[in-house]
Simulated scan of single mutants.
Amino acid sequence: MRVRRSSSVLLLFLSVILFLVGPCQPGCRETGQCCTGRDPSCFSKGWRSDRTFGTCYCDQACVSTLDCCHDYDSACPALSCVVSEWTSWSGCAEPCRATVRRRNRTILQEPLNAGNPCPHLEEHAGCAEYWSQHGNCHNPPVPALIISGGYGNARKKRDIPDSIDITGYCVQFQLTSLTKGCQQSSGPHTQWMQHLREGHRVCVECQPPALAVGQTHCAGDGEENDGGRRQSLQWQAVGNPRCRGVWRRVGRLEACSCPTAHSFLFI
């Protein structure tokens, strides 16, 4: 009885040692398998990575289903996608109008064995060209003229008839492109242009003095042709003709809600 009990204890001890020491059955390396995607035929018999014994897999899906063979990570290491640097921006797609420019990058290493997937390979941004191959545009697009929001405190208001109830409004835009001249504005009245950055959202207020005669909106705000679309429009900073660009209209606001550095006025 004592011998039988000792034998049982020994077998149990050996089983625990075998479990702790690790797999002794074929895995991905011995079977020479490392398969892409979910492949039921890509399997072996042995210890799984969760220390259970049975059918184990060597395909990429085993990472999410947790039934990989014990040596999957070392035999089939994950390789994430590797891409090149961005190319230079292309020219505008069409001259004489607000349109888009493009840049792209290429795949240098495809992802393998559940590695990180590739990021997007193409980017678009707004741009505008004021000339064509034949010279200056005949009908160049008229940009919105903007100035720092602080100018509104000292602005002389144009006489507005009492019969017209105009309180002004605000339009939010996302900057999609701007010239390098904006960052080179060092004068005391043009330093605000240095806060302009691609991708930032800005608020531009339309005050009554900026309204054209007989109009209820400011020039260049996209109000006439809105139609619910996110339009790409041109803008020009007052005081520095080298600071201009393109922005995408987000929508009209009854009250501006942008930080002071990102708040401007239509002129």
Rank of each mutant, 00 (worst) to 15 (best):
F43P: 00
S44Y: 02
G46P: 05
W47E: 15
S49W: 04
D50H: 02
D50I: 00
R51Q: 06
T52D: 09
F53C: 11
T55L: 00
C56G: 01
D59R: 14
Q60C: 01
C62V: 05
C62R: 04
V63E: 14
V63F: 01
V63M: 09
V63S: 12
S64W: 11
T65V: 09
T65D: 12
L66R: 14
D67Y: 02
D67G: 04
D67E: 05
D67L: 03
C69T: 15
C69M: 05
D71M: 01
Y72K: 12
Y72E: 08
S74L: 02
S74V: 10
A75S: 15
C76I: 10
C76A: 07
C81R: 08
C81Y: 04
C81V: 04
W86S: 05
W86V: 09
S88T: 08
S88A: 09
W89F: 15
S90I: 06
C92K: 06
A93Q: 15
E94L: 07
C96N: 03
C96E: 01
C96P: 03
R101L: 02
R103Q: 14
I107S: 07
E110Y: 12
P111C: 02
A114C: 03
E122S: 06
E123A: 10
E123Y: 01
H124D: 13
C127G: 14
E129I: 05
H134D: 12
H134V: 08
N136W: 10
C137V: 11
C137P: 13
H138S: 08
N139E: 11
V142G: 06
A144M: 13
A144H: 14
L145A: 09
I147W: 07
G150V: 10
N153I: 04
I164C: 08
G168V: 02
G168Q: 06
Y169N: 05
Y169Q: 03
Q172K: 08
Q172E: 12
F173N: 13
Q174C: 03
L175C: 10
T176N: 04
T176D: 07
